[in-house]
Write a protein that binds this DNA or RNA. Structure first.
Lengths: 145, 145
DNA sequence: GGCATATAATTAGCTTAGCTAAGCTATGTA
DNA sequence: TACATAGCTTAGCTAAGCTAATTATATGCC
């Protein structure tokens, strides 16, 4: 079921600008040693188990070469490993290491993280509103064109 | 009034990842000829009138050199002009040109814009939830540390 | 079997956009 | 007048996206 009325262009601009700014603020302080792209990819690998690198790129909505670099960093950090596909010599599967679980747990519970600090300043109502909107934002981010 | 309960770290991670991905998708298709940073700055200049460049950088939460480059692009595009401060030879005020109003109006009403297309696919409930969360996202993005 | 095509990942190099450090010029103060 | 401060610019770094071209493997057709 889609909307019959067009969304307000002013709202769209606000969303666009707000998302851009929030991203900027978040990217300025990357949690620990990982970059933004690395955390995003690592979360996906943890969630979707051993996954072909191409499929990981598709899920992250990123071109293949970008994922090569991101995965390279994660491998250097010992957070994922590449398992060669026994049935396809071109392909390989990316899997998290135990260290990755530990690190993601640490990141998630990191109370000092900037965003958590800010979220903690929200009123319960604001927080509830934000959490309610999360699935919508995720859908906007995941949808194909 | 702040929350008595800590925000859920899982929610924080989801927000972080979702904002990152949405930004990525949005940045891939910049509306028209303007880049993401340029639109964001232009919106602020339009809203806050002639504004000192340093203050613009502060509002955008960006370092001064970044704003020099962003404003440079906007000037080349004829969307803003620099008015030298008569009282302070070091400083200058950034003001939008009529072309900027026209362009922003165009951008805002651009129905073909990717985000609008996606937003149009939301249910009315989802859309309402998103719009309700907008001020909260904006607050998260604007807050100082 | 052998060659053409297709696919997975990588490499090389470009762009946008953030940053810090250092520099220039104007201001203000001792 | 001399020195410190403030506003903006320049130079050069990093992260992270992209496209185009390469490499290596699979697959499909004669």
């Amino acid at each position: 079921m889609t909307m019959t009325l067009q969304p307000d262009p002013q709202d769209i601009t606000r969303l666009r600008v707000a998302v851009g700014r929030l991203h900027r603020r978040l990217a300025q302080r990357t949690s620990g040693e990982l970059t933004f792209a690395q955390i995003s990819a690592l979360v996906t690998v943890e969630k979707h188990g051993p996954i072909r690198q191409g499929e990981l790129a598709a899920r992250e909505k990123v071109a293949a070469p970008s994922m090569t670099r991101t995965v390279g960093g994660l491998m250097e950090a010992g957070l994922v490993e590449k398992i060669p596909d026994p049935e396809d010599g071109r392909s390989c599967h990316i899997a998290v290491t135990p260290a990755a679980h530990a690190l993601l747990d640490k990141v998630r519970s990191e109370r000092a993280a900037m965003l958590s600090e800010r979220a903690a300043r929200l009123t319960p109502d604001q927080y509830a509103t934000l959490v309610a909107a999360l699935p919508v934002i995720e859908q906007l981010a995941e949808e194909d064109d």
